[in-house]
């Protein structure tokens, strides 16, 4: 099947590398300033080399609109950065692709958090799929895990560590006695935190992921405004010591209680032997189900290859379901 990749940063490039010899053909790529299209398939090593040398993946003056109008793809892969407020411009691009009867796979949280129900209805109407496994917890197959793996269960509660940056900071505060500003600086130096870490440390990024899970697999209808959000930026070392004295620590926990229609993100005191206590940038999600009991997923929540893994899983699912020619 032919892929058009919109967004050619670390994730887009990682995906392009991971797609070599998978049988998928990349016919178009676009970054924020340029694009390249070849209906017969692009020379990916050449595109990657050009991107590295010039910062552009293709020709300026060509853009994602041209890729859409070319129609030379079966699946649109949208991996541009998230805009949590409106989901744009990715939301419009995804909407157009679905309206054209093209499948969509995305790692972009904005459109899914802002407009999942609308996009899903459009996809159903056109008989195509929208895959978004990569939007929550990177490589961890939480969407398919809940939708397929635990199908038939009622999820009574979901708790998760959904932001690797916060988990890294809290892990370092506990392990090394670093203050919050010191741990944040270290996370920045290592590239785990953005130059502007607000969305991570204030709990907004984790909240967006909860909105996605609540709306797409837990049958709820909530927006970011419905989530009670508290970040980690005022956690003191003394708080970690007091927790430690009780055999516990502090982690930023996302919580969904479907029965109470309650969604919140807050730092919580959690026993050190709880399965959600994972170290460093790892993500973990624990669900409590009526039949299965407690099930916990742990894995890498970010990075080009873990994200590519989730995208590839969606792509393979679509190919298995729709590509009868293969």
């Amino acid at each position: 099947m032919r892929l058009a990749i919109i967004g050619f940063g670390a994730v887009g490039q990682g995906l392009a590398r991971a797609l070599v010899e998978t049988g998928f053909v990349i016919t178009a790529v676009a970054d924020s300033r340029s694009a390249a299209i070849n209906p017969d398939g692009l020379d990916i090593p050449e595109v990657l080399a050009r991107k590295e040398k010039t910062g552009l993946c293709g020709d300026t003056g060509v853009g994602s609109a041209d890729i859409l109008s070319s129609g030379a793809f079966d699946i649109l892969v949208e991996v541009s950065p998230t805009n949590a407020d409106t989901g744009e411009p990715a939301l419009s691009t995804i909407r157009s692709a679905l309206a054209m009867g093209k499948h969509v796979v995305t790692s972009n949280k904005g459109p899914i958090a802002c407009a999942y129900h609308e996009l899903k209805a459009l996809a159903d109407q056109k008989g195509v799929m929208i895959g978004y496994e990569a939007t929550v917890a990177g490589a961890v197959p939480i969407v398919s895990g809940l939708r397929q793996g635990l199908a038939g269960n009622t999820v009574q509660s979901l708790h998760g560590i959904l932001n690797g940056t916060c988990n890294y900071i809290l892990t370092r505060m506990r392990d090394e006695g670093l203050t919050y500003p010191q741990a944040l600086q270290e996370a920045r130096d290592l590239g785990y935190a953005e130059a502007d870490p607000t969305s991570d440390v204030k709990g907004i990024d984790a909240a967006i992921k909860l909105v996605i899970l609540a709306n797409t697999v837990l049958g709820m209808d909530v927006t970011l405004n419905d989530v009670a959000i508290t970040g980690i930026d005022s956690i003191t070392l003394e708080a970690l010591s007091l927790a430690e004295a009780e055999g516990a620590t502090i982690r930023l926990i996302g919580e969904i209680l479907p029965g109470k229609n309650q969604v919140r993100v807050s730092p919580r005191v959690i026993s050190l032997d709880h399965p959600l206590v994972v170290d460093g940038t790892l993500n973990a999600i624990s669900v409590c189900c009526d039949l299965a009991g407690q099930v916990t997923f742990i894995g890498k929540g970010a990075g080009p290859y873990p994200t590519a893994s989730a995208i590839l899983a969606d792509l393979n699912f679509i190919r298995d379901a729709y590509d009868r020619g293969a």
Binding site: Q156, S157, H159, T230, S234, I235, A239, A243, A248, I250, I253, E255, L257, S266, P267, R268, V269, I270, S271, H274, L276, C288, G293, Q294
Partner: peptide, 11 residues
Amino acid sequence: ILILEPIGGME
């Protein structure tokens, strides 16, 4: 004041 609540094992 920031309140940190505990999280139970199973809820």
